[in-house]
Design a protein around this nucleic acid. Structure first.
Length: 424
DNA sequence: TGGGCGTGT
DNA sequence: ACACGCC
C-alpha cells in the first residue's frame, strides 16, 4: 500500500502557525516578486481567486478582503522538514516528492491497520508542527493521489481516504472524474484524449494501453496501469542527483545596468555551486541567459542564451562565476531593459569518478584540496550562520535584482534575529 | 503575470 | 529544440 501525504494549503498553513489571526481569513501567498498567487486558503478560494492568478489582476473589491503575503521560503522549507521528520517516525520509506507532499510506502504493514495508523500520524503532524495534512492510500501512486483529493474534499473521510482499486465505489468515483484532474494529465493531453472519446478516468483505465502508447507515449500507457492499481511510477528518481541545475530570478525592477546583471549572475552562480556541491557533482558546462519582459510590448524584446564549456569539470563557485562573467560579456547588449537572467549548470558528472578531458589542465592535488576546503568552509558557514553570511563579492545596496517582497513575514524558525516573540 | 526540475519525441 | 507535465 502507498500513502500520499499532502499538506493542506501549505504556505498559508505555515503562515497561520505563526499568526493565528489569519485563521478564518482569506489568505494568499504570492510567488517571488509578489507576482502570482501560488497558495490559497479555503476562504480566498471561495472569493474566486484562482491558482496562479497575477496578484495585480485581482478585483480591487476582492483584494480588500484578502491578506496577500510575500513568499517566505526559509519558513516553508523549514516547516516542510519538520513535517517530513514526523512522517519518518511512522514508516521507514518516505519519498519526499515536493515541499508539501511525500509518498510513503507501507509495504509489509497490515492493510486493515493503515487508516488508523494514518489518523494517528496525521494528528501527530498537526500537534508537533501545526500543519494540517491529508492522506490518500491505495496501491498505486496515481490512485493514492486521487484518494488524497477525496480525503481533502469529502469531510466523511476525516483527512484519511483509502481507495480499493477494485471496489464499486472506486469505479463510481473514476467514472465522474474528468481526465484533466488525473496526475499527469493537463490541458493539452486532456484535449487529445477527448478526441479519442476518453473523458473520464474510468474510460482511461479501461482503454487499451497499446492504443494510448501509439497516440501518446509510455507515460500515458503507464497511467492506464496506475489507474488499474498497478504501481509502475518509480520515485527513486526523486533522490537521484539532478542532471541540470538552474538558478534564475526576475529582477525586482527592469534594468539596463550591466553591474546589476553582473551582481545577479554572480549570486546565481554561487547558489548553483552550492547546490552542485551538495549533490557531490561537478559541472562541465554552464549556460548564461538574459531576457527582457515579454509582456512589455512597448519595449524592444531581446533574449540570448550562451553555453560555455568549462575548462575542466568543477564545483568551485569562483570558477563558475568567472565563466558566467565571460558569458555576460557576450550576451549583454546596451540599452536593453532586462527583466531576468540566470545560469544553468550542465553536463553534470560525479565528483568521485571524474572523467578527465584530453585537454584538461592538470591541477596539483594540493591546490585542489585547498579549493575544496575553501568551498566546504563557505558552505558550512552559510549553513550554520544563515544564508549569505559569507559571499563572493558584495552586491550594491538597492540593486535592481533584489526581490520585491513587501509583505514577507519573519523567518521565525531559521533566523535568530527573527524569532517569534511571546508578549507578556 | 515565478522558479526549477522531469520525460519523451 | 520543443512539447508537455508537476508543484
Amino acid at each position: 500500500m502507498i500513502g500520499l501525504v499532502d499538506c493542506n494549503n501549505f504556505y498559508v498553513s505555515c503562515e497561520r502557525v505563526f499568526n493565528p489571526r489569519l485563521e478564518g481569513e482569506a489568505v494568499g501567498v504570492m510567488s517571488n516578486n509578489d507576482g502570482c498567487v501560488v497558495a490559497r486558503s479555503q476562504e480566498i478560494k471561495s472569493l474566486g481567486v484562482a491558482m496562479g492568478m497575477p496578484a495585480h489582476q485581482i478585483d480591487p473589491h476582492i483584494r480588500r478582503k484578502c491578506t496577500l503575503l510575500s513568499s517566505n521560503y526559509a519558513l516553508y522549507g523549514d516547516m516542510s522538514s519538520r513535517v517530513t521528520d514526523v512522517l519518518s517516525q511512522h514508516t521507514p520509506h518516505v519519498d519526499v516528492y515536493s515541499i508539501d507532499e511525500s509518498f510513503l510506502s507501507f509495504e509489509g504493514f497490515e492493510a486493515d491497520t493503515l487508516e488508523e495508523r494514518c489518523q494517528v500520524m496525521r494528528q501527530q503532524v498537526r500537534r508537533d508542527t501545526g500543519i494540517p495534512v491529508s492522506v490518500g492510500l491505495s496501491t498505486s501512486k496515481t490512485l493514492a493521489k486521487i484518494a488524497n483529493h477525496r480525503a481533502k474534499k469529502e469531510s466523511m473521510f476525516n483527512g484519511v481516504a483509502m481507495m480499493d482499486p477494485n471496489s464499486n465505489d472506486t469505479r463510481a468515483f473514476l467514472e465522474q472524474l474528468p481526465v484533466n484532474e488525473i496526475w499527469g494529465v493537463a490541458g493539452r493531453s486532456a484535449a487529445r484524449l477527448h478526441t479519442l472519446g476518453i473523458e473520464n478516468a474510468w474510460q482511461l483505465r479501461t482503454a487499451s494501453p497499446k492504443h494510448l502508447r501509439r497516440h501518446f507515449s509510455v507515460v500515458m500507457e503507464r497511467l492506464v496501469y496506475e489507474l488499474r492499481g498497478e504501481n509502475c511510477i518509480s520515485l527513486d528518481d526523486m533522490s537521484q542527483p539532478k542532471k541540470q541545475i538552474m538558478v534564475s530570478r526576475s529582477f525586482g525592477r527592469l534594468t539596463t545596468d550591466k553591474t546589476d546583471l553582473r551582481e545577479a549572475l554572480r549570486a546565481h552562480a554561487s547558489r548553483a555551486g552550492e547546490k552542485l556541491r551538495r549533490q557531490n557533482g561537478l559541472a562541465q558546462a554552464l549556460m548564461v541567459f538574459v531576457h527582457t519582459n515579454r509582456f512589455r510590448q512597448d519595449l524592444p524584446s531581446y533574449s540570448k542564451r550562451l553555453v560555455i564549456p568549462l575548462p575542466h569539470p568543477t564545483d568551485d563557485s569562483r570558477e563558475l562565476i568567472k565563466s558566467a562573467m565571460a558569458g555576460l560579456e557576450r550576451v549583454f547588449k546596451k540599452d536593453i531593459w532586462y527583466q531576468k537572467c540566470g545560469i544553468m549548470l550542465m553536463d553534470l558528472c560525479d565528483h568521485d569518478n571524474e572523467q578527465l578531458g584530453l585537454l584538461a589542465e592538470p591541477i596539483s592535488d594540493e591546490k585542489r584540496a585547498r579549493n575544496e576546503k575553501l568551498m566546504a568552509t563557505l558552505d558550512k558557514l552559510n549553513r550554520e550562520h544563515g544564508k549569505n553570511t559569507v559571499r563572493l563579492g558584495m552586491p550594491r545596496k538597492q540593486n535592481a535584482w533584489e526581490l520585491r517582497c513587501e509583505h514577507r513575514t519573519p523567518r521565525y524558525t531559521t533566523r535568530w534575529e527573527e524569532l517569534a516573540v511571546a508578549k507578556t
